[in-house]
Amino acid sequence: TPLSPSSALPPYFMKGSIIQLADGELKRVEDLRAEDFLQSADLSGELKIDSSTVERIDSSRTPDAVIIQFSVGEHKTQVCVEVLVEYPFFVFGQGWSSCCPHRTTQLLALSCARLSVGDVCISLTLKSLR
């Protein structure tokens, strides 16, 4: 069962939002790079970056939403999420990407590429607790 989308995007995706990396450095959301996420996860100790490949993008019964199926990590765990079409994901080698980049840019001023099947997104998992 996909997770339900919230009705609004969180404020930190707005262009110009200040993001604090794990080493304390501050960056604007639009300036983040894949390395920032990888290094921050390394420093955090309890979080691990996984590669999540987009397997399917389907329309949803919820207006302005899509259901995205990901294959996550080395175990290829299948995960479905329902998000608004403008919700941005960070894609390796491409940066911020959404199913409707025009709408993302309109609403958030965040420059976006189109999210497509085969794209590899950054996602998080908790490291196993001992």
């Binding site: 969180p10 404020p11 930190y12 995706f13 939002s17 200040i18 993001i19 604090q20 990396l21 794990a22 501050l26 959301v29 983040l32 920032d36 996420f37 921050s40 996860a41 955090s44 979080l47 970056i49 996984d50 999540s52 990901f70 996550v72 990590g73 175990h75 765990t77 995960v79 999420v81 994901f89 960070f90 950054i122 996602s123 998080l124 998992t125 908790l126 196993s128 607790l129």
Partner: peptide, 25 residues
């Protein structure tokens, strides 16, 4: 007098979705 407005700072991990359940070994 204009009060200075504090700029919100968001932690990096709020931008990344948790997509996978924790694997139990």
């Amino acid at each position: 007098n204009v009060e200075p407005r504090s700029v919100p700072v968001f932690p990096w991990h709020s931008l990344v979705p948790f997509l996978a359940p924790t694997q139990s070994d």
